[in-house]
């Protein structure tokens, strides 16, 4: 019953997918390529992928009064050093790591016990609380950014790390996901832990947490990707204070600072910011795709 391999069909499918792949990869290719090439090569679209890497002179360096020989460098070196010297890229990256990790840790601290109570404890009003969680799933946080911003401004928290983190501390989606996961955990496991004299707190963190690792991993990928890439919320609450900027916001400032001809350094900065997630994604592709689809509800 097995059909013969249809080579023509197979060839056509690959052609279509390949054409799509070229369009999808075009900006990634350009980003890397521009980050390597000299301004002249970028503007004239010459030099292939890496450019000729002829020694060029850094005009800014000359202006700063340094000796000419120190200002001669390869375009690749120029682009990446300019990216790091013109913008506090390292600071942005550290801010990004700090904010995304804090958000994830707090989300778990809040959601895990709640999910446990909603799935394994019987108490008055449990269904009401679960109903509230379902209702809150309907509210996209980006849509209520304005009132959140007003509230944070009223208590004087704009332009702080707290402002970047607070609105995301509650993930109703995380509660929902964990609860669904805990429903599949057998009650015997919890009863056995209670028999051993474990407190409810110990059960949450020493019994439930380890069983929830797969769900937490999926949720973690979703949360980290969403908040590392988020631009809207940081743009709303961080106004001007560069020390607090996350990578996308920092990049945006970098863009508006430049006079428009500094494609090379700009693309070098973009590469540095985009690459970490892309590399992790390529290393753990399957987990990422599973994690994002499993949590695709956002």
């Amino acid at each position: 019953m097995m059909a013969r391999t249809n080579w023509l069909g197979e060839f056509l499918k690959h052609s279509v997918l390949l054409a799509g792949a070229i369009v999808v990869l075009l900006p990634f290719y350009l980003m890397l390529s521009y980050s390597l090439k000299s301004p002249a090569e970028i503007e004239s679209n010459t030099g292939g992928f890496v450019g000729s890497q002829e020694i060029m002179t850094d005009r800014r360096c000359i202006k700063a009064g340094k000796p000419a020989e120190e200002c001669d460098m390869r375009p690749i070196v120029y682009n990446y050093t300019a990216a790091f010297s013109e913008a506090p890229l390292v600071r942005y990256m550290l801010n990004g790591v700090f904010v995304t990790v804090s958000i994830f840790v707090i989300q778990v601290l809040v959601a895990l016990p709640c999910a446990y109570a909603l799935s394994k404890l019987k108490f008055w009003g449990r269904d009401v609380v679960f109903g509230l969680v379902i209702f809150c799933l309907l509210i996209p946080v980006h849509a209520i950014a304005l009132p959140l911003y007003i509230m944070l401004a009223k208590v004087g928290l704009t332009n702080t790390y707290a402002a970047l983190i607070i609105p995301w501390t509650i993930s109703v989606f995380g509660i929902f996901l964990m609860r669904q996961f805990f429903m599949t955990v057998p009650d015997d496991l919890i009863d056995a832990a209670r028999m051993d004299g474990m407190s409810e707190f110990a059960i949450v963190w020493r019994v439930m947490l380890p069983t929830a690792i797969p769900a937490l991993l999926a949720f973690g990928i979703f949360s980290v990707v969403a908040h590392w890439n988020d631009y809207y919320w940081p743009r709303v609450v961080i106004t001007g204070n560069r020390d607090l900027m996350t990578p996308p916001l920092g990049l945006r400032m970098f863009k508006s600072d430049l006079d428009g001809n500094e494609y090379g350094p700009m693309m070098a900065a973009t590469t540095v910011i985009v690459l970490p997630l892309v590399i992790i994604f390529l290393l753990a592709q399957r987990r990422f795709i599973e994690g994002i689809t499993m949590t695709g509800m956002k």
Binding site: A21, F28, P248, L251, M267, V274, L277, F288
Partner: peptide, 21 residues
Amino acid sequence: AVFFLPVMATLLAMAIVWEFA
């Protein structure tokens, strides 16, 4: 993997690349 790449990549950064392109 290729088609999923843009979902992962920072949209703001990639938007800037598209602007150049």
